[in-house]
Design a protein around this nucleic acid. Sequence first.
DNA 1: TTCATTCTCACCTATGTGTGAAAA
DNA 2: GGTTTTCACACATAGGTGAGAATG
Lengths: 539, 539
Amino acid sequence: MRDPVHSAAVMDYYPFQIHRPGAYTLSSGGHPSLLPPLIPRVAPQVERLAGQVAADGRAALRGLQRTEEVLDEEPTVTLDSQSLWSEFHKRGTEMVITRSGRRMFPPFKVRVRGLDESAKYILLMDIVAVDDYRYKFHNSRWMVAGKADPEMPKRMYIHPDSPSKGEQWMRKPVAFHKLKLTNNILDKHGFTILNSMHKYQPRFHIVKANDIMKLPYSTFRTYVFSETEFIAVTAYQNEKITQLKIDNNPFAKGFRETGNGRREKRNKQSAVPGSADQEGADSDEACENPSTSNHHHSPLESLSSPLTLPPPCQEEDGESDSDMEPPDEDFAETRSSRADRDCTQDSEEMLCNMYAETEPSKKMLTFRTLRDYHMVAADAFKTNNKYRDYVMAQRQNLSTFSGGHLQTLDFSLSQNFPKHLQAPGLFQPGQSAAMPGAEAHLSTSENVTVPLWRFALISIPLHADTSCQHPSSSHLFFKLSSGQEPPSLQPSALATLQPLPDPHLYPPEAKASFSQSFNEFELIFWRVKIREQTFGSSV
Amino acid sequence: MRDPVHSAAVMDYYPFQIHRPGAYTLSSGGHPSLLPPLIPRVAPQVERLAGQVAADGRAALRGLQRTEEVLDEEPTVTLDSQSLWSEFHKRGTEMVITRSGRRMFPPFKVRVRGLDESAKYILLMDIVAVDDYRYKFHNSRWMVAGKADPEMPKRMYIHPDSPSKGEQWMRKPVAFHKLKLTNNILDKHGFTILNSMHKYQPRFHIVKANDIMKLPYSTFRTYVFSETEFIAVTAYQNEKITQLKIDNNPFAKGFRETGNGRREKRNKQSAVPGSADQEGADSDEACENPSTSNHHHSPLESLSSPLTLPPPCQEEDGESDSDMEPPDEDFAETRSSRADRDCTQDSEEMLCNMYAETEPSKKMLTFRTLRDYHMVAADAFKTNNKYRDYVMAQRQNLSTFSGGHLQTLDFSLSQNFPKHLQAPGLFQPGQSAAMPGAEAHLSTSENVTVPLWRFALISIPLHADTSCQHPSSSHLFFKLSSGQEPPSLQPSALATLQPLPDPHLYPPEAKASFSQSFNEFELIFWRVKIREQTFGSSV
DNA sequence: TTCATTCTCACCTATGTGTGAAAA
DNA sequence: GGTTTTCACACATAGGTGAGAATG
């Protein structure tokens, strides 16, 4: 049995090129590769060793050569408690999401090296959808259960110590335990909103910037540790995951076995209704000492995971995946085998190749600017009913700009902004009457009364960290130029925003228009009706 | 009964002038005044209303006029939970100090107004000795019990949200609950080290600066709320203070009365040995509802406090202060009456006058620079055995510069530095053999072997706030120019300091030399013996 | 039914209180 | 003797766990 190889694959991000074949090649193969579906458009450039001080099996990669020098002073990031993460990953990590917000376990914590000691950095984390599937746990297996539900806008969590000097970041592991997961689309804490039964990938970002306001203009170095991938759940599905959590999370100590035997309650749960299939495989030994199992892993298999490579079957039950296959404790093995068989989609296939030829554990993307970053990250920024609810939830604390001294912003570069951000469909002109409180579904093939609006831009910090009492946990209000439609903002516009004297000046009848997510702020446009105008569309 | 009048007395600080009579006068009197002994050299300049939104009795001051305009954009600071503070103050506030660190109660929390919304500020707090006395609680009274013990260097606690915009500071009260008090001179948490049975005064500072490194060059606006004065104790002395703490601190809820009657334990303690005098005054009603007592306060009396005006008697028991005087629950009353009688020292007398004519609650000092600030604050920076222990305690984490590239600092202005900082007596040339590990008391009238040293300057952040995981909680190491004696540093020298590559290069035989306290750092000089030289002094 | 979600609960960690006996 | 300090302790706050019943 062989440990998975964990080293960093450092890649440059070229937002407007899918492939850059020939320019930079991997020493062991030379194929350009793709990252998973929702982390697309990545071309490999350079690759370096990650855990130079790590003592695990990654030394096997030392012989790899590079055709290109690494970028100057490329920071090195290693995942803390990697072995624990791998334990979970082998079984298919689950993270509970609750209405009130839940921490991740294992905690997402990284060690950073190679920073400029005296330069200031902002460290961030976010969580993005891995694929476009919805999953279900059936017969002790994760299976695809249809197309993904629309994603809520994902918040970029800024580590509360940001900005700090490289020296300080490198002094001790950087923990993100204050990032909380929720399924509450009305959340007002700034938690990360996830869809239950969907697959996600945490990411870590390093930005060399001495001020949070400079984030939009800065280069993002993004690190992905594939063993931190997980499926969000409202209740644990895989009993082995539950056991791992209980055994390792200090807060769950109360559920550990009493005395020498097994805990009563946990055994009881495993005898719960459902299709009590193959409970024999769930022996104490297998669960308690997974590393002593006799399964053999091929190098490729050990590099894959049940979460990394979803099966192509999107039907509820219509796949040949044998229900009789024993519910192996090492889920990753069987899943990756299936992937080898069934992986037909391009990106997944290329991903398999990349995994076979390089190191899957850590991938780094470097974004030249926030704009580039959004080219990749904005996939989660979709227009849907949930999103509308989300926007309206934000409204509870807000009112809207009633007039006064308006200010013009520079939108000259807004065409460079991703389409998702420029005009979420919900708030397109013809649908402006479909605001909450109005009709839920308004066809565009009718006469439409379109109000004319003035717009106020309201900025909500993306992470409201009250435990550290950071003043930025409240809302900021900005005034924005008037216009008929909320314009698309680009990062440079942030610099020209001016705070309003008193947010309470906004009248309650103001309505949220649409929203954009920047690194620091969730920008929400509010509009105040000036007058109405009727357009005859088709009727 | 009349509420104490609490408004802000805003004063300019002129470090080199005791009085500036005539230039600015108080509208209600016109006498220049002094602050308490260890906050000296203050001339009143302007005075303004503090709580413009407050609804208490301070409206009585609205009619006061000023002969001088307030400084442009002078921030206004009001103390949070002021009535609770006053409850304690009337009885003589005590704060427990423990080895592991103890919070203050009531919590020191202020509301700030009048800041520039978009400018960045650093908010700080420190605690300074009020006088040069040591106290004891005898016959239910605080009495002077001799001269004060030497003070440890006081740390300037930087609010962890610093720097933040004025807008953010003004949004909600600024709490300093993470500042902890200790009597452990070896403390390595960065807590404030106090002497038990000594009197202290918390202070609040506003500095307009966008970077902590700019603190040394910035103007300090300092606010003093006299009702936050307290005596540090290792165990509560005044039972009424204990009761107030229990009744108001949520964490002490377990000690509140059970059911309808009085708590058993507390009554038991009040029947403890000692001089169980006049326990009748300790009736349930009087203790539980102090505000309903029938005592009448003269305006002057209610403005004074037992802690503000120490009795002049410095003998253990040799004063005429009648032990038969009833241990009134309203201690402040009797104490201030005594002060009126006995206050003979100039500063105290003038203080009494000032209290009679202006508002005692809030005093503000404005320091033009950190250097000026130290002219006032450095009184706590004394040379003594405790201090030596303290310095050596710091050494546990340190070693010393062994050579290499030395760097010259600019000491051209060091004569402007307060004497306390320039050469603490312990480390004067003739006493250099009296380092820890050598003789404790070395007379200067002997032959002395004086080592020649090289100096390394080591910088220790003053607040190590680990709860927020701020990276600055570790030590920083700087190299310093060599020399025979540790030079006195001035703020501008900080800018030229360069971090050393590895603190562990310092040899263990290095010795702490002396220390300076800046706003951000505790600077500790370490020396490495180069060679020795013997001086014949007088023998 | 089956699956997914929500909620209360006991049981943890972690930390802030004064007590009261013992020690210094 | 008197005074001051220390420590284990019970009891708070605050919040992080999964269990399991109830709900949809």
